[in-house]
Structure formats: structure tokens, C-alpha cells
Design a protein around this nucleic acid. Structure first.
Lengths: 339, 339
DNA sequence: GAAATATATGTCGACGTTGTCATACGTCTG
DNA sequence: CAGACGTATGACAACGTCGACATATATTTC
């Protein structure tokens, strides 16, 4: 493999001078710089990161440790955000998935250590509370889309589920809906509670009574093997004599079944029932007809900001732990009509 | 940072002996081995990969270069397969996305070189033909879910779209369907042609005439900004006096709109129309009611086998270029009925 | 019992890079 | 013109690991 030494030989200078050129250090004549650059090009020299790393004990690498994130359709945008940031800032990303297994998590921390990772982004597929098995090692860590169990030990970045659900609820209320159905997310997800709270609070503030709301559980059970009641719940809800004029679905994926239930009962969307989702999981929200009005999880920005934040932590900037929150913007499409 | 030297000092042995213990080499007394292992545990020593790498000039790292794969919901299973293999075999994975830009692709190859990657997995989101910008560098490469333009230069692993579509078509024919609709995938995808060919050939072999088939284009245009005709096409198809009793959808995502179109026309699934998809993109195929019968893209195995194949190439085993194909198994659910 | 072999451990250098220090020349200052 | 400074380059060591080789016992073989 061509190294700095071969370049030096060809250019007729010392290793150190080549190093200087590579790193853009001052005190190199224009003329030698050119000679070295030509040699680099001719030989196709590329710096060896590993060698740099042992020399400088900085790897310029961040690790992503995820439950399923990189391997699951939902939150890939978080990874995209991180990678874009890394690309723009010359960092390398190492990614690993625990698959939910904690012995796997320990293995991954070891692997990260062995690569002398500068920092870790702890990412989860669903917004929830976790208890990361952060080894005895003190690698700077930022949590994305989750929050550490042990209160406020680490900085975290989360979506603002509450605000998203509040805006969505207001949106329906402002359009005249007074009977609203709600199909709940799996309760093990943080978003489930936050979204439902926002729904309850906002409808309450607007003067709706509990009897104006139909709230049903859509899913429950361990992630990946949950029981799905959405279709049945939506069907039952829409068969009530005094059926809701709008249904809020815990997320977009569940909205598929709400659509099917409504249509199978001969109801038109949105003329007979309005439907909103949550997440803006575009494979679904853009595939439904009419396209789904929903609140967009800020996944891409979660990744971007998370990487940025981790970088300041690593650089030694004092970053206070505790969670930062990013808003879920309402995406207006065609699944809601005004009454 | 704690290194082999500090371990050696604590254990009262030479560096080399520690190295022997770490690498499980023979010729170490049980007693010294234990002493060293205790020192490793006490100090929390973890081997430095970078140092290993400069020493051995093997990085034990594979790179994934993808168009959008890791950042797009569809083919994350390929990545999961690769990572599982890597995990089981002690390899590290470096992942990067071109986002479709070729200057980005060149940057990534450089980055891979600088990490002295042992091999590259070139992965695409959709099954198609590509012209990888493989630098002047000869890093062993395996293509996954795509095929190199310049004929047979590199080994590749692809899904058997033809077989999948053939099995799906047969499945419908065997259940008595004789009027079948087909909604075509975006023609820029390799799968589009293969699946349609299989559909035409299989129905033909079975004695159906061209007039028994309704074939409509579902999507076209550049990936990510395609025009979507699926809903309109399905609606039109199902309004024909002599409407098909079954519809094959180019993929699962498009099947959402076929479902909605059918239901909006008051047709029941599967009693009035049977529907099949392709891909087994489970976020969709399991969310639809009734659940969708489809052919599963072998993404996970594509990743697993691809990594395995790359490994043999790297290890110097003679691997003939050309494409290997993996079958798309039919997943029977409830969206088809027998006539 | 001498030679051959097997087992157990250590010394040293090299991988590719860069930080530290040294050197050499040229230009300025007083 | 001596000393101080600025610029341009090089020599060398060190980072952590492991391969090649050397050494030192213990055990076997004839």
C-alpha cells in the first residue's frame, strides 16, 4: 500500500513535509507543495485513518447504537440526518443494532471502544424511555428519540409528541369537528401517552365532554409482536349511531386500517369521516387516497441536531444534560374536511 | 488509554504474552493466562483496532455503499442481513449513502480507501442496473440488488423477480381467476420488466388471451418524484363491465391504492376482487385488511449471502463474477379467494 | 545421558502518521 | 554587522499491536 513514505520519496522531500501538505499546515513553499500534490495524485495516495488514529488518539468517528433503527423502516431518517451531518463534517459513522438484546448491547459498546469512538448516538426506533447499558466507560453520549431512565444523566433530543397531537386536535376542532374518535398507539411507547394527553387536554379546553370522544386501544404487546385491534376498533367506532365525524389515528400505519374500515362501511373520506394520522411515514401517508393529513416526526432533524450536539459534547463544550424537544409540524393534505 | 503495555505491567509479563492471551494463541500456561485475563478485566482493557490494522494491514471492515438503502424504508432488511453476518463473523461495517450523486460516490470510495476497507458491498434500494464509479482502486466488490452495467465484471446477488411474479400469477390461475388486472411498476426498475414478463408468459402458457388481461401503468418518472396513477388505473380497471376478478399490483405499496379503489367502488376484498402485491413490505402487507398475499423479496438473505460472498472474494477464493439469484417466496394471506 | 523436541516466554522492530525538536537559510532591527 | 526573528525543511520518536526470532526450561527419544 502506498504510504506517506513513498510519496515523500517520489516528491524528493521528507515524510514530515508530505504530512504538512496533507494537513494544510503553513511553512511549505508553493513549489514543494505542488510537487508533493502531484506525487500524491500520481501514486493515488490516500491517508491511512488507522495510523492517524493511533498517533492522535482521536478517531473522528461517532457510533450509532440503535435498537432497530437502521434496520426498520420507520426511523431511517434519523440515520440519514446523522450521516449527512457526518459527511459535511468529515466524521465517520459506525452503526450497530442491538436488536433489543442487552448482551448484544454490551458487545457493541466493546466494539465501539475498540474503535476508540469519540462519541455515541443512542437511537431508538420508537420514542421511549431506555436504560442504556453504558459500560463503565465514559464515552460522550447523546440520546435520540428516547430518554434515559435514570433521569437526566445524558442530553437527549426528542420529538414533541404533545405539541404535534395538540396541533392536530386543534386542526380538527377548528374545522368544526365535535365528535372525535381516537385510536391509541401501543401504550409502551412514550408517544402514546403524550399524544393522548394532548388530545384529551385540547378537546377539554375546547369544551368537549368525555362523551364526545371515542377512545379505543389500537395496539398492545411487545414491539414487533403486538396485537392489532385497529380495524375492529375503527369499525366498531364508526358503526355507532352517533359516530365521530373525525378519527385521529395513533400513527399513519394504523390509519391504513381506519381508511379500510371506513370505506368498507360505505363511508367516504373525508366527506363522511375525516381522518388524521401521526408520523408522516410517507410510504403510507402519500399512498393513501386521499392523501393523509398528519403531523411529521422531525426524524431527519433529530439526527442532524443530535450529531451536532454530540460534537459539542465531544469538543468539550459544556452541554447541560436534559432533553431538548423538536416540533412535529402539521402536514395538511386532503383527508380532513370542514363541517 | 489503557494498552497492552499497561496490562503487561500489571500482570507482570511481556507485551507479547498479553498479545498471545488476547489472540488465543497456544503456549501460555493456564496460570499466566489467568493472571493476564484478570489484569485485562481490572483495567478494562479493550484492543485497539486501529493499531491492529496498521500492524496487519487488514481492517476486518466491509463498506456498504448504497444509493439510499440505509435511509429509505424499503430495503433496510438488506442492511440487517449484512450486519447480522458481520456481527457473527467479527467484522465491522462502514456505511455510506450516495444519495444518487456520483461526486458523492467518489468521495465515499476515497473514504473507504482511507479506512483500508477489505471489501465493498454495493447495494441499491431498487433492483436495477448500475454503473458503479469504482475508482481506479481494486477493492473486492459484490453487488446486491443490482447488476453492473458493464456486463459481468463483478459478482452480484439479485432477487428472482421473474420467479416471484410467475408463482403469484400461477397462484391466481390455479384459484380459477381468468380475468386478471396488472398494475405496472415504474418501468425504470428492473423488477418492472421481469415481473410483467412473468405475468404475460404465465398467463399465456395457461391459455389466457391478451384480452383477458388489463395492464396499466401505475407509476413513472424518476425515483423519489414519480407520478402515481395507481388509484386512477385501479378505479378505471374495476369499472369495466367485464372487470378482472383479481388484480396483481406491481408492489405492496401500490396495493394500498388498489384496496382503496376497490372498496370505494363498493367491492369486497377478496369476495369481489382478489388482490396480490409484491415485496412483502410488511408495514403495508400486514396492515392491510384483509392482509395481503404477496411475494417476499429476500432482502435479509440478499444481505447475508452478499456479505458471505464478499468474504470469500476477500479471502482470495476464486469467485466467478456474474449474478446469483434468490427466490421470492409466496406469502399466502387472505386477499385472494378461489372462484 | 546426549540429542532432539515441545512448551513457555521474552526482545525487537515495523506498520503509517504526526508532534517535538533541531537545523538552515534569509531578512529585519538597532 | 551581530543578534533576533521568520520561514522552510528534516530527523526522530512514539502511538498500540503483532510477526519474526531468540531464549529458556521441560519432556521425550534413542
Amino acid at each position: 500500500m502506498v504510504s506517506i513514505v513513498s510519496v515523500a520519496k517520489v516528491a524528493g522531500v521528507s515524510n514530515k513535509t508530505v504530512s504538512r501538505v496533507i494537513n494544510g499546515e503553513p511553512y511549505v513553499t508553493e513549489e514543494t507543495r505542488e510537487r508533493v500534490e502531484r506525487a500524491i495524485r500520481d501514486l493515488g495516495y490516500v491517508p491511512n485513518m488507522a495510523a492517524r488514529q493511533i498517533r492522535s488518539s482521536r478517531s473522528n468517528t461517532f457510533g450509532i447504537i440503535a435498537d432497530y433503527v437502521s434496520t426498520t423502516p420507520y426511523s431511517v431518517d434519523i440515520v440519514r440526518g446523522i450521516q449527512d451531518w457526518a459527511n459535511a463534517n468529515g466524521k465517520t459513522i459506525l452503526m450497530a443494532n442491538t436488536g433489543g438484546a442487552s448482551e448484544q448491547e454490551i458487545k457493541i459498546w466493546k466494539m465501539f471502544q475498540s474503535h476508540r469512538i469519540d462519541g455515541v448516538l443512542y437511537v431508538t426506533m420508537y420514542h421511549h424511555i431506555v436504560d442504556p447499558e453504558i459500560g463503565d466507560v465514559a464515552i460522550p453520549t447523546v440520546m435520540i428519540n428516547c430518554r434515559p431512565k435514570t433521569s437526566e444523566l445524558l442530553p437527549s433530543i426528542e420529538p414533541d409528541d404533545y405539541q404535534g397531537a395538540r396541533d392536530l386536535t386543534r386542526y380538527l376542532l377548528e374545522r368544526g369537528h365535535r365528535k372525535i374518535g381516537y385510536i391509541r398507539l401501543n401504550p409502551i411507547l412514550l408517544g402514546a401517552e403524550l399524544r393522548l394527553d394532548a388530545f384529551r387536554k385540547t378537546t377539554g379546553d375546547f369544551g368537549l365532554a368525555e362523551s364526545d370522544l371515542s377512545i379505543r386501544l389500537g395496539m398492545e404487546g411487545p414491539v414487533g409482536a403486538e396485537k392489532n385491534y385497529v380495524f375492529a376498533a375503527a369499525t366498531e367506532m364508526l358503526q355507532q349511531k352517533d359516530r365521530p365525524t373525525a378519527i385521529m389515528s395513533g400513527n399513519d400505519e394504523m390509519a391504513i386500517q381506519v381508511y379500510i374500515a371506513a370505506l368498507a362501511l360505505g363511508l367516504r373520506i373525508p366527506e363522511d369521516v375525516s381522518i388524521v394520522g401521526f408520523d408522516d411515514f410517507r410510504t403510507v401517508s402519500l399512498a393513501l387516497r386521499p392523501e393523509l393529513t398528519t403531523a411529521a416526526l422531525p426524524y431527519y432533524d433529530l439526527g442532524l441536531q443530535g450529531a451536532e450536539l454530540l460534537n459539542s459534547v465531544v469538543a468539550g463544550g459544556e452541554v447541560c444534560p436534559g432533553s431538548r424537544v423538536m416540533s412535529c409540524n402539521l402536514v395538511e393534505r386532503l383527508s380532513v374536511c370542514s363541517l
